[in-house]
């Protein structure tokens, strides 16, 4: 039997993240994170902007807030993760300035997409590691949206129905 390791967040990390998200909430988490981050940039706006770009465009503001809170919860209490987020956002800020002459928080969606694509294309870099963590946390929220799940023909959790048709060719894609 095989047991898979989810990285970068451990299994216990998922439990801890959930609890922290409940405890500190999005706003409290942002304040905590901003309080420990040096620099003039609007860190809250930058992070929210990247999260928004990672979510499907139809996602509502509540999902952007939820995903941002999840990112913050995932770094809470872990100095190395917080440092990675700091450095990663610093990279995005610098690249926004170099490419577009604007702070990250003021970039439009195509601009943010372009920076995310740059980060995704730089394996073994801080930018890529930060991108991976943001994407990881954000997807959990994006794919909790019933409208999104309906659009991919997801049949729902494995139970209670099970998969009585398991031996047949799938209907639809899945």
């Amino acid at each position: 039997m095989f047991r898979f390791l989810l990285t970068p967040f451990s299994r216990r990390g998922f439990l801890r993240d959930g609890l922290l998200a409940l405890l500190i909430g999005g706003g409290g988490g942002l304040l905590w994170w901003r309080s420990r981050r040096a620099g003039p940039a609007d860190a809250q706006g930058s992070l929210r902007g990247l999260v928004e770009a990672l979510l499907p465009p139809a996602s509502g503001a509540d999902r952007v807030e939820a995903a941002t809170a999840r990112v913050l919860a995932s770094v809470g209490g872990q100095p190395s993760e917080a440092a990675l987020l700091d450095h990663g956002l610093g990279w995005f800020e610098r690249r926004a300035s170099e490419r577009f002459g604007q702070p990250l928080a003021r970039l439009d969606r195509p601009g943010r997409d372009a920076l995310l694509a740059e980060a995704a294309a730089e394996p073994d870099s801080v930018a890529h590691a930060c991108f991976a963590r943001l994407r990881h946390a954000t997807l959990g929220v994006a794919l909790s949206d019933p409208a999104v799940l309906d659009s991919i023909a997801y049949a729902g959790p494995p139970l209670p129905a099970g998969h009585g048709d398991y031996a047949d060719a799938p209907r639809g894609h899945g």
């Binding site: 499907p56 997409d113 995310l116 991919i152 894609h173």
Partner: peptide
């Protein structure tokens, strides 16, 4: 490896594969 709308399109195409 995608995100945003492209991710949803990729999921629609590949989920279950």
């Amino acid at each position: 490896e995608s995100w945003g709308d492209a991710l949803i399109a990729d999921l629609r195409r590949t989920y279950g594969s």
